[in-house]
Amino acid sequence: MTADVRPPVPPFTEETARAKVRAAEDAWNSRDPERVALAYTEDSVWRNRDRFLTGRAEIRAFLAEKWERELDYRLRKELWAYTGNRISVRFTYEWHDVRGQWWRSHGNEQWEFDAAGLMRRREASINDLPIEEADRTLR
């Protein structure tokens, strides 16, 4: 198997879709833009909130900027639906800004994969709520 294959690959079953979601959660919680970017095709297309990105280089730069701003980031993803080469997830993550304000971000993502299991499209809708540090649930 080559480095360009990211199992599990489509078509997804419930078991392989859950494994794909767990792998994504683990990668994002590493807060390593290099590691995370390798899960996407070279020409992957993203919508993240109001930003539109194309390609691994833009994704990598976006993630580096994100984790410089969203400190002590911790994420949980949950499988919502799957079919063929697509997976939908719900997620929650918590982080704080440089002023110490904690945030909880909720969202939904739709993912589309190529035959090698690399994500070629990601659509993310996200809302942020300020929280008190004592109200954190993700540690």
Rank of each mutant, 00 (worst) to 15 (best):
R120L: 06
L53N: 03
Y40A: 11
T92Q: 13
N108F: 14
V45K: 07
H106R: 14
R56Y: 06
R74P: 03
A81P: 01
R31D: 00
E70Q: 14
F52E: 15
E94F: 02
A81H: 12
N127A: 06
L71I: 15
T2W: 00
E112K: 03
A64I: 03
W67Y: 08
D4E: 10
P10S: 10
A39K: 00
T2C: 04
S105W: 00
W80P: 05
P33L: 00
L53G: 02
T83L: 13
W67E: 09
L63V: 09
R56T: 12
R56L: 02
E112N: 00
S30C: 05
Y73C: 08
T16A: 10
P11K: 00
W67T: 07
A64S: 09
A115Q: 13
R86K: 13
R51Q: 15
G107Y: 08
N29L: 06
L79H: 03
I87L: 07
S125C: 01
L75Q: 10
A61R: 14
I131A: 04
A17V: 00
I87E: 01
N29I: 04
R86W: 05
T2Y: 01
R60M: 02
V45H: 10
Y82G: 04
M1Y: 12
R22E: 15
W46V: 00
W103P: 07
S88A: 15
V5E: 14
E70C: 10
R69H: 06
Y93L: 08
L129G: 04
W95Q: 03
R31F: 03
R76Y: 02
R104Y: 05
I131Y: 04
T16G: 12
Y82F: 15
D128A: 01
L71Y: 01
T41A: 11
F52H: 14
A17K: 02
D135M: 07
G100L: 03
E78C: 13
M1H: 05
D43F: 02
N48A: 07
A37Q: 06
E68L: 04
W46S: 12
A3M: 08
L79A: 08
I126W: 10
R104I: 02
W102G: 02
G117E: 08
F52L: 10
E15I: 04
R104F: 01
D26I: 12
F91L: 10
D4W: 06
I87A: 08
R51C: 09
V45W: 07
A24T: 12
E65D: 15
R120M: 08
Y40V: 14
P8L: 07
G107L: 08
P10G: 11
R49G: 14
W46E: 09
E15A: 15
H106W: 09
N48E: 11
V21R: 09
D72G: 15
D114Q: 07
A134G: 11
E123V: 13
A17T: 00
L53F: 07
T92Y: 09
N29M: 05
P8G: 11
N85T: 03
R51W: 14
L118W: 04
A24R: 05
F113S: 09
F62Q: 05
R120Q: 11
D4G: 10
R104C: 04
Y73K: 11
N127L: 05
E58G: 10
F62Y: 14
N48K: 03
V45Q: 13
Q110G: 12
T92S: 12
T92V: 14
W28V: 06
T16P: 08
L38K: 10
A37G: 13
T83H: 14
D50Y: 05
N48D: 13
Y93V: 12
G107H: 06
R31M: 11
A23E: 15
R69C: 04
N29C: 06
V89W: 08
